[in-house]
Design a protein around this nucleic acid. Structure first.
Lengths: 341, 341
DNA sequence: GTGCTTTCCAGAAACGTTTTCGGTTCACGC
DNA sequence: GCGTGAACCGAAAACGTTTCTGGAAAGCAC
């Protein structure tokens, strides 16, 4: 471990090329009023000396961090769904192309999230914020709006007067339910993710709409809210069966619930895809591996991430109109659903 | 979207409590030479006004970011192993307890990693760096050592003259191989992760040592290096079978390889656990779910993360001796291995 | 030669903290 | 009353950039 090396400052660089500090700064930051030759000379010298502007000094003066923060929520279970990972990939790709850095912070729980947001905003550690897991009424969003701090969410809220990108949850719920109805199912259950999240409302809305459109009566005992554990879908299914609700098909608000339900079904002697149909939602990679493979919906996370990044850049570029983007989801038929018994 | 709010500065706060700026700063930063009452008054006022020191200004002056960066490598496949996630959890827990922030950056590939490192240390965006996927000769480490920048790795190198934490890969390889030998296997293959990573060398070393200790001849055709894809272990097994190497047991350098090999085995008409024994390495959650469940090794990521964080804090606190920590791994017997046919 | 742009660059003032250095006050012992 | 030391606090100098303002030089038309 050698001694720490003193990093060259902009003054060293200026002295080295025989120009003033201000000219060097303007050359490096792409200002127009600097001769092309001069700029080249400065850039070469910077490269040679290994000069890089101090982050702290630059942001202190310019009030810009050139950094966007993505706050990821901790996944429900150890069976990590790569949701955020895919997203981050897309986000990073377009941000870095525009010279922005992506920073990720992890939040252990919801209270931590609001804290993290306060910290980043109030200490001005980045120029904009990205996050998901939106709720119908979301204090994170209230706070950010009150401060006028730029952000984009994956997912909507009730007010929806901010920038977001989201899948068409209603359409998705409708498609899934319609498919099950076409298969001849009449007792279709909706295993809902926690209702504190907006997306579970949307899926439910689509589910109910499809039932109504088909003239099927709505049975509230067939709707169950599942919580955050690996067994959650299985518990819900067990409850449905033992309480005599007799579902023949399950539309699950996410794949974790669906996988867990299939596991429980097998334990109860029901063969998923034959005795009971199951449809998932977000195409987790292990969903395709299951036995039977889970019918679910496409999710092009990379693309969503890229669009998200473009939205936030537009916002940072001064766009004022609300940016909102609803992305389509296509069903992927696999073997976990089929004709009613 | 309302107008951006002007954040109160330390001057506002000082004026508000009728003290000088310097006293306020010292009160907030826990210096000793400030009256307890004064400190309390300042802290209350800060709370009331919502004052938070500007990150840029503070780090510019103090040359300390109070931030540690964890650089995560992108996982091999979409079948995300929660390796980094578990780690991060532990790291964050102890860092925040000491008032440090954890920042995460993702690297798409190895070249990006060295770039990221350069950027963070040259722009001084954080006080220390954490990362994994070490190689026997690792230029990231060379660079950091040359700059005298604090860092801790998960995994070792050939020189090993830096701070690291790692599992006992040699012991792990030996245990796995010994177990297979006890089961009566004599043709035991080692499906190795890419040899550019140090840990695959260690596992191999343990594997070879166990063979030698048992007096089994070493057959180089039974060692295969696998690359980064989901099918990799399967391809290796297929190659072994078709080339007539006739292994009856596989020790796999990581679980992804093991799972893939089991999949391929089934496709070849071999029942894992009966016709062929398979042992994995890092206990990915889906390993326990497979059919049969994979025999693997424990991995207490939380604990490792916490220890890692403590190491880096010690380093930032001025520790000079090299900190190195080898953690034991315990075998978890499941159904994917058994007596030789 | 004069006036007027345009092009390029330099000087100096920020940015909001932390930290150094020194000064004031007070208590206390003599 | 005076010196001494401890306990607090204030003034001002950093920290390394960016950006504002202005000014010299060059080019051009008259």
């Amino acid at each position: 471990m050698t001694e720490a090396v003193r990093r060259p400052g902009i003054r060293d660089l200026a002295a080295h090329v025989g120009l003033s500090v201000s000219t060097v700064s303007r050359a490096l930051n792409g200002y127009a009023d600097v001769n092309a030759d001069t700029r080249r000379k400065v850039e070469e010298a910077a490269e040679r000396l290994g000069y890089r502007a101090s982050f702290a000094a630059a942001t202190l003066r310019s009030a810009q961090t050139q950094t966007v923060t993505f706050m990821v929520s901790k996944p429900w279970t150890k069976f990590v769904d790569p949701f955020y990972l895919g997203l981050l990939d897309g986000v990073e790709l377009v941000l870095q192309a525009q010279g922005y850095d992506l920073q990720v912070v992890m939040a252990r729980e919801y209270e931590a999230e609001i804290d993290i947001i306060r910290r980043t905003v109030e200490r001005h550690r980045s120029d904009a914020l990205l996050f998901g897991r939106t709720r119908p009424e979301d204090e994170r969003i209230d706070y950010l709006q009150a401060r006028g701090f730029p952000f984009v969410t994956v997912g909507q809220t009730l007010r929806n007067d901010h920038d977001w990108i989201d899948r068409d949850g209603v359409g998705l719920g409708r498609q899934a339910t319609e498919r099950l109805i076409r298969f001849g199912h009449t007792r279709i259950a909706y295993l809902s993710p926690p209702l504190r999240y907006t997306y579970s409302h949307h899926a439910r809305q689509g589910y109910r709409a499809a039932l109504a459109a088909a003239g099927l009566s709505f049975d509230p005992t067939l709707e169950i809210e599942c919580y955050l554990s690996r067994r959650t879908g299985g518990e819900a299914l067990t409850h449905l069966i033992t309480s005599g609700a007799e579902p023949t098909a399950l539309f699950c608000g996410n794949d974790m619930i669906a996988l867990s339900a299939m596991e429980a079904a097998r334990a109860l002697g029901l063969r998923p895809g034959h005795d009971i149909s199951v449809i998932g939602c977000d195409d987790m990679p292990i969903a395709a591996l299951g036995d039977p493979a889970l019918t679910s919906f496409t999710q092009d996370l990379d693309a969503v991430g890229m669009r998200m990044a473009r939205m936030v850049l537009a916002k940072l570029g001064g766009a004022t109109e609300p940016l909102q983007d609803l992305v389509e989801a296509r069903l992927i038929p696999r073997e976990s659903d089929g004709p009613a018994p």
